[in-house]
Computed example of a mutant assay.
Amino acid sequence: MSTRIFNVLFLCTGNSARSVMAEAMLNVLGEGRFHAFSAGSFPSGTVQPIAAELARSIGYQEPLRSKSWDEFARPDSPPIDIVITVCDNAAGEVCPIWPGHPVTAHWGIPDPAAVQGSEQERRHAFQSAWMMLRRRIDLLLALPLDKLDRLATQRELRAIGETERAHEH
């Protein structure tokens, strides 16, 4: 049994909802196997209250904060093994050079923070994004990462990002 802990960085533009929820979820569900972080290319500086509430609902205790991806591109940053973009904007942006040359994948998730409407409609959008992330993180947790080489890992992670697309429409 591998004792290696994989560092995963979830990225989106604002780092206020999807990437923050993914960070909390993977830290709780993958405890002991994964250490998750999140950041944004243009961080909003705030975490969406519903995202924070969902993170707390699964037992995530750490304070969530919106931060720049530059924090993870410094020489003294934790070495990142996997970078996953969760918004289409961030996937198209020119990323910093990450120390450690991580495997990258894109898991596009619709932005719940962009939904306008009643409190119930907004909550539904966050719940949908949460469930989509949960299914993808469950698939990530099922991967035998310590047995896969870099290319196989990247292929599997990218396939996870495609799984929902067929079911979304």
Rank of each mutant, 00 (worst) to 15 (best):
F6Q: 06
N7E: 03
S16H: 04
S16T: 07
V20S: 12
M21P: 08
E23A: 05
A24N: 10
M25E: 11
V28D: 08
E31F: 15
E31I: 13
R33L: 13
A36C: 00
F37S: 00
F37P: 04
S38Q: 03
S41Q: 09
F42R: 13
P43H: 09
S44L: 15
G45H: 04
T46P: 01
P49Q: 01
A51V: 03
A51Y: 00
E53H: 02
S57K: 09
S57I: 14
G59L: 05
E62L: 08
L64V: 08
K67G: 12
K67I: 12
W69R: 02
W69Y: 00
D70H: 15
E71W: 12
A73C: 11
S77F: 12
S77G: 01
P78A: 07
D81F: 07
I82G: 00
C87I: 04
C87A: 09
A90E: 05
G92R: 09
E93M: 06
V94T: 12
V94F: 11
C95V: 08
I97P: 07
P99N: 14
H101A: 15
V103Y: 00
T104V: 09
G108D: 14
G108H: 14
P112V: 13
E119Q: 13
R122T: 08
R123G: 07
H124Y: 14
A125K: 06
F126H: 01
F126C: 03
S128D: 12
S128N: 10
A129G: 13
R135N: 10
R136L: 10
I137L: 11
I137T: 04
I137N: 01
I137Q: 01
L140Y: 11
L141K: 10
A142W: 08
D146V: 04
K147I: 10
K147Q: 13
D149S: 01
L151H: 06
Q154S: 03
Q154V: 02
R155A: 06
T163E: 10
R165V: 12
